[in-house]
Design a protein around this nucleic acid. Structure first.
Length: 617
DNA sequence: GCAAGGTC
């Protein structure tokens, strides 16, 4: 009987696929040297010419192979940093992955066919080549096939098993180019910067790293700082009308909002007062609704975790990962904001009915309140939106875990309920020659708001329309900027943010939701490189975008890994040479007699609106 | 002592 070795990217996929292919008849489950990985033995009938096969299904745990420079370039004093652009590199099984690699090599020894079941994305294609190389160490002639699948639904998995494809060498080559370039450029600039700035007061021994993701992330924070700093406040004037009835103060906003000319506003104000009475011109009532949220993606979880739970995106992800491995929530790394048609959502709602906090709401959904979740526009075809898969009693979780789990559950229940409904009333006033307006909201049906306690729905407070400085960059804003500019992946964005805090480039302002302000060091690095005058600054997202474009070209066959690496190395080598020639610029940006490089930068915030108050009768 | 990516 033909022996086939199947390998997935992670243990959870191996388990699910083995379950489907074996039809529940797994002959043997064997432990491996890695505590997360099991080998599942069973029989399965593959298409001809293989037929009935003796199958072993196993997994790796992401990447198994590490990259580094060869001896003579690895230590910082071995060579000048510029030598890293051409230094030979080596690939090896990382010490943490020894057991994983050994399992693949030994299981491949007696197999005729290696069937790769890694995720169907670029990174998965590359990980597939890692697995192939490991298998060929013990079995050079093993035939390699690849399963094409985008979810782990039973029929879909069986179809993938019946239609073997091939590894996409181009996608793997694109990833290989990215790995090599990130290593060479990151290591060269990091060593150079660190050694250059080591002499600057207050930076002894501190690493000053450069990376294609961490630098643009820093750039976003510094960008906001500059917008705040360059903001010039100018006093402006407005008229506010207030009417008190039944002990409720109603504020009316001026139709002109505000003007910079104090004298003109004074005259208009006097005219209002002269008119003595303000007349109601119109009262318009309009039904309105507040939409329930979309199904939860990783990026949304990180943004809202920071906004509502006061937890850093990295902590939220670590907790979500733990809740996932314990089987409480679904896979937390997903771009998908659409639930699959086939999913039994009421069954998942049913698991939450035993909760003291939201059980009653869940019961209400099952008793007629259920409404199909809205579909977003993203689908990674690999994972469903994040949702609870089991009920967990609160005493099984610590305080932070409880909050993240609660958020995932409440978000899910909100998705399965109805939009909130209400009615707005807009009142227009004529006061002399000036017009004023206000609007109020009456919530008629709270629906999803009952369970999604993070959303508030009140009449929107009208703010002065202009002349307010921007605030600090918040973590949700930073994540949104990274997402929009392709900096990092949903799984790594939180790490890049944590990295620039660790490097003391930025500070997280601890109170409430996290906001970021740059340090003097962070500003100096961005300004220093900006002043050197590159075509594309290292602190901007364009270089990373360019890398993405080149990777796509490799995938299309328009260029090769080697050509991309060579041309990009030349591009960065030129920037490196220029930076070395201008090292004084970088040092000057950092060296300031009164500024602590690791200290926070001082902000000066702009002025406030001034109001004249008139009272309506 | 360095990057970014995968996953636990």
């Amino acid at each position: 009987m033909t022996r086939i070795l199947c390998v997935a990217e992670k243990p959870s996929i191996a388990k699910a696929v083995a379950g489907h292919l074996s039809g529940g008849a797994i002959r043997n489950t064997r432990n491996t040297g890695n505590k997360y990985i099991k080998n599942y033995d069973f029989n399965y009938r593959f298409p001809p010419p293989w037929g009935e096969c003796n199958v072993t299904m196993t997994a790796v745990v992401g990447h198994t192979i590490s990259w580094d420079f060869v001896d003579g370039f690895r230590k910082w004093k071995d060579c000048p940093p510029s030598a890293l652009f051409d230094a030979a590199t080596k690939q090896f099984v990382s010490p943490e992955s020894k057991e994983v690699a050994a399992n693949i090599s030994s299981e491949a020894r007696n197999a005729q066919i290696l069937y790769i079941w890694t995720d169907c994305d670029r990174e998965g294609e590359y990980i597939g080549t890692e697995v192939m190389d490991l298998a060929r160490k013990t079995n050079p002639r093993i035939e390699v096939k690849r399963a094409k699948f985008s979810n782990i639904e039973r029929a879909h998995i069986l179809h993938a098993a019946q239609h073997p494809g091939d590894l996409d060498e181009r996608q793997a080559a694109a990833v290989r180019a990215r790995i090599e370039l990130d290593l060479r450029i990151g290591a060269a600039f990091t060593r150079w910067q660190t050694m250059l700035l080591q002499t600057v007061r207050g930076l002894d021994g501190q690493i000053v790293s450069y990376g294609s993701c961490q630098f643009p992330t820093l750039g976003f924070v510094v960008d906001r700082y500059k917008k705040i700093k360059s903001f010039v406040s100018e006093p402006f004037w407005s008229i506010k009308v207030m009417h008190k009835r039944d002990d409720i103060n109603v504020n009316f906003s001026w139709d002109r909002s505000s003007l910079f000319d104090r004298m003109a506003v004074m005259i208009m104000y006097e005219r209002c007062l002269a008119a003595k009475v303000a007349n109601v011109v119109s009262v318009v009532k309009k039904p309105t609704s507040k939409w329930k949220p979309l199904p939860l993606t990783t990026i949304e979880l990180q943004k809202q975790g920071s906004r509502f739970l006061g937890l850093s995106s990295q902590l939220v992800m670590n907790i979500a990962e733990k809740l996932y491995t314990q089987g409480f929530i679904s896979y937390p790394r997903t771009e998908t904001d659409q639930f699959d048609e086939g999913m039994d959502l009421p069954a998942l709602v049913g698991k939450q009915t035993q909760s003291h906090a939201w059980g009653e709401f869940a019961q209400g959904l099952l008793a007629g309140g259920f409404s199909k979740p809205k579909n977003g526009t993203h689908n990674d075809k690999a994972h469903p939106p994040i949702h609870p898969v089991a009920y967990v009693a609160p005493d099984k979780l610590n305080a932070d875990e409880k909050r993240v789990y609660e958020f995932v559950v409440r978000r899910f229940l909100a998705c399965c309920s109805k939009d909130a409904r209400g009615e707005t009333t807009t009142v227009k006033l004529q006061y002399g020659e000036e017009g004023f307006h206000t609007s109020g909201l009456v919530v008629l049906e709270r629906n999803y708001l009952e369970v999604y306690v993070y959303d508030k729905w009140t009449s929107s407070q009208e703010l002065p329309a202009k002349d307010l400085p921007p605030g600090f960059l918040t973590e949700p804003e930073l994540i949104a900027l990274m997402d929009a500019n392709g900096i990092g992946t949903d799984a790594t964005m939180a790490e890049h943010i944590a990295k620039i805090i660790e490097r003391k480039y930025v500070f997280a302002r601890p109170k409430g939701r996290s906001e970021f302000s740059p340090s003097n060091l962070g500003i100096a690095l961005v300004e220093g490189y900006d002043n050197i005058g590159f075509d594309m600054s290292l602190s901007k997202p364009f270089l990373r975008k360019e890398m993405e474009v080149k990777m796509k070209k490799i995938c299309e066959g328009a260029t090769t890994c080697r050509d991309v690496v060579n041309s990009s190395v030349e591009q960065y080598r030129e920037m490196f040479v220029k930076a070395s020639q201008c090292s004084d610029v970088l040092k000057a940006a950092l060296f300031h007699p009164t500024k602590d490089p690791n200290g926070p930068v001082a902000y000066e915030l702009g002025g406030k609106a001034k109001c004249l108050l008139a009272t309506a009768r």
